[in-house]
Computed example of a mutant assay.
Amino acid sequence: MAIIRPRTEADFVSCVVLLRDVHESAGYPVNWPDDPKAWLTPPDALGCWVVTVNGEVAGHVAVTGTAGGALVERLFVDPKQTGQGLGRQLLDHAGQIAGDHELDLTLEVADNCTAAIALYARAGWRETARTPVAWGGDQASAVISFSAPSSS
């Protein structure tokens, strides 16, 4: 059974190991951070959460406050556990957090993250912009911005 809970200090080792697996298998993040533990807690974070399966960390998400709303960040799932709906559960949780704060939710993703882009499309997110990037090397050429589906 999957459970989403606030990330704790004790989760960092598991999160960094999973992040390395995601980086090597899916190219996220495009550039490996100098300090992965610090990278997992972006500035202006409203919170960071993990999803656990049978007590083991299987994914992560952060939500940050922005001038215009909230942003989904640091969303990733254990590559061995993709296809189980864990990413969608984390994405929905981010939406609930933004809603609790009465903030519009957006996200940005590098164009090399095809599985994530497909997840966002299936979940009803709308592409709003594509911005070329120079930092993606031969991995990514643009960042795609998405807006959360309207809650009706």
Rank of each mutant, 00 (worst) to 15 (best):
T64Y: 12
L86A: 07
V13C: 09
T64L: 02
Q81M: 02
D92F: 04
Q81D: 06
H23S: 03
R126L: 14
F146N: 13
A45G: 08
S141Y: 08
V13W: 14
N112G: 09
G27K: 02
T82C: 12
E9P: 12
T8V: 04
C48G: 00
W125D: 15
L119P: 07
T131G: 03
L90S: 04
L105H: 10
W135L: 01
G136W: 04
D34A: 04
Q96R: 13
G83F: 05
H23P: 15
F76A: 03
A45V: 01
G95P: 11
Q139G: 12
G136L: 03
A116W: 01
L86V: 12
L105Y: 14
G136F: 05
P42G: 09
D21P: 10
S14L: 15
L107H: 14
L91D: 09
E73G: 01
Y120C: 03
V16H: 02
R7S: 13
G68P: 09
D11Y: 04
A26P: 08
D44C: 01
A110G: 12
S14C: 07
F76E: 05
V72G: 02
Q139Y: 10
L71K: 00
T128E: 13
Q139K: 13
D78P: 02
V61T: 10
L46H: 03
A115Q: 10
R5V: 15
S147G: 15
V133G: 05
L107Y: 05
A58N: 08
G68Y: 06
G55F: 02
K80E: 15
N112P: 12
T131K: 05
L40W: 06
V143E: 11
V53Q: 12
E108H: 11
M1R: 14
R74P: 15
C15S: 04
A26Y: 14
S150I: 08
T128P: 13
E102T: 06
V57S: 12
